[in-house]
Computed example of a mutant assay.
Amino acid sequence: MQLGQILRSARRAKKLSQAQAAARVRLSQSRLSALELDPASITTEQLLALLGLYELDLTVQSRATAALSSATEW
């Protein structure tokens, strides 16, 4: 799952509309929509605000560890 999909799924799980979520993190609804479709331009501040709102954790790991993890999930 890609970042935009994760953000959209988390927002829906919290039962928030784009307008409601955007207002809580001081974004426009159109900006949140754009980020869910293509998060390439998301800022660190926006990402952290959305993660906090949706109660998500950010995990950073080496690519080698990530490759092993995804290989063992199947």
Rank of each mutant, 00 (worst) to 15 (best):
Q2M: 12
A49R: 14
L53H: 13
E55W: 00
V25H: 09
T65D: 13
T59I: 12
L3F: 11
A49N: 13
R26K: 10
S9A: 15
K14E: 06
R8M: 01
L37R: 11
L35A: 01
L37T: 00
S17H: 02
S33P: 05
D38W: 02
L27Q: 05
R26M: 12
L58A: 06
L35T: 01
T72S: 15
K15D: 06
L58M: 12
T65K: 09
T59H: 15
A19Y: 04
T59P: 03
R31A: 15
Q18A: 09
A23G: 03
A40F: 01
A71Q: 14
S9L: 12
P39K: 07
S28M: 13
S41V: 02
A10Q: 07
S9Y: 08
S70C: 15
Q18E: 05
A67L: 15
A13L: 12
A64K: 15
Q61T: 07
S28P: 07
A64G: 11
L56K: 14
A71L: 15
Q5L: 08
L51S: 05
S33E: 06
Y54K: 11
R11E: 00
G52L: 15
A23E: 08
S41W: 07
R31I: 11
K15Q: 07
D38Q: 07
M1T: 00
A67F: 14
S30V: 03
A67V: 14
Q2C: 09
W74G: 12
A21I: 02
A67Q: 15
A22F: 05
A67T: 11
S30W: 00
A66D: 05
A21W: 07
A23K: 03
R11V: 00
D57M: 14
L37M: 08
